[in-house]
Amino acid sequence: MSSSDGSGTRGPYAKGVQRRKEILDRTLDVVASKGIDGTSLRAIGEAIGVSHAALRHYFDSREALLLEVLRERDAESTRRLDGVDGVLNRMAGAADHNVSVPGLVTMYTTLLATSVEPGNETSRAFFAERFEIARADLAGQLRDELQASGRHSDADLDQVASLIIAAFDGLQVQWLLDRSVDIAGTLRLLERVL
Score class of each variant (00 low, 15 high):
Arg143Glu: 10
Gly103Thr: 10
Asp144Trp: 04
Gly86Tyr: 07
Asp156Arg: 13
Leu177Glu: 14
Thr186Met: 10
Val101Tyr: 01
Leu187Glu: 08
Gln141Thr: 03
Val84Gly: 00
Glu145Val: 04
Glu63Gly: 02
Thr9Leu: 15
Glu63Gln: 15
Val181Gln: 11
Thr27Phe: 08
Pro102Met: 06
Leu190Lys: 07
Gln174Phe: 10
Thr114Gln: 14
Leu55Asp: 04
Ser180Pro: 09
Gly45Leu: 03
Leu190Met: 13
Leu194Phe: 01
Leu55Gln: 07
Leu176Ser: 01
Val181His: 04
Gly38Thr: 04
Ile36Thr: 12
Val31Leu: 09
His52Asp: 05
Ser180Cys: 01
Ala161Ser: 09
Ser115Met: 00
Asp182Ile: 08
Tyr58Asp: 15
Gly8Asn: 11
Pro12His: 06
Leu163Pro: 07
Ala136Ser: 15
Gly140Cys: 03
Gln174Asp: 13
Ala92Asn: 00
Arg90Gln: 15
Ile183Gln: 02
Val116Ile: 08
Leu177Trp: 09
Glu121Asp: 15
Asp156Thr: 12
Gln172Ile: 02
Tyr13Cys: 07
Val17Lys: 08
Leu177Ala: 14
Lys34Trp: 07
Glu22Pro: 02
Ala155Met: 07
Asp182Phe: 07
Val193Glu: 00
Ser40Gln: 09
Trp175Ser: 00
Thr78Pro: 03
Ser33Lys: 15
Arg79Gly: 02
Ala53Cys: 03
Asp82Ser: 14
Ile44Leu: 01
Glu22Asp: 13
Asp158Asn: 14
Val99Ser: 06
Leu24Ile: 15
Ser4His: 06
Arg151Tyr: 04
